[in-house]
């Protein structure tokens, strides 16, 4: 759930998440964008369990996804127009 008025957020943009277009606002963290798009499975753990953001401050590493080819912490990366995000990569 996004809080508050639409106009309080940055410009509307769209990203590609696992091959589908996802609308969001520029500057939102990739973690926030994915969660709002209903993604709950960011990475798969060593024994095969699904994981999603936990600390939301860059220290735990549970939110690693591939963003434009690079493995980055989704909670620290701001969304930009046209970014390509691959979960579980």
């Amino acid at each position: 759930m996004r809080i508050g008025q639409e106009e309080e957020r940055g410009p509307r943009i769209s990203l590609v998440v696992d091959g589908r277009d996802v609308a969001c606002h520029a500057g939102e963290s990739i973690a926030a964008v994915l969660l709002e798009a209903g993604v709950t499975h960011f990475r798969t753990s060593r024994t095969g369990t699904p994981r999603a953001p936990w600390c939301n401050m860059g220290t735990c590493g549970e939110c690693y996804v591939r963003i434009d080819g690079r493995r980055r912490r989704a909670c620290l990366v701001a969304a930009q127009r046209g970014m390509e995000v691959v979960t579980d990569g």
Binding site: M1, R2, I3, A31, L35, P53, C55, M57
Partner: peptide
């Protein structure tokens, strides 16, 4: 999540995930 992490979503990202 951690309480701090969840709070950061609310106050900074302005979402309740």
């Amino acid at each position: 999540m951690t309480v701090g992490g969840l709070q950061a979503f609310v106050k900074s990202q302005r979402i309740v995930p």
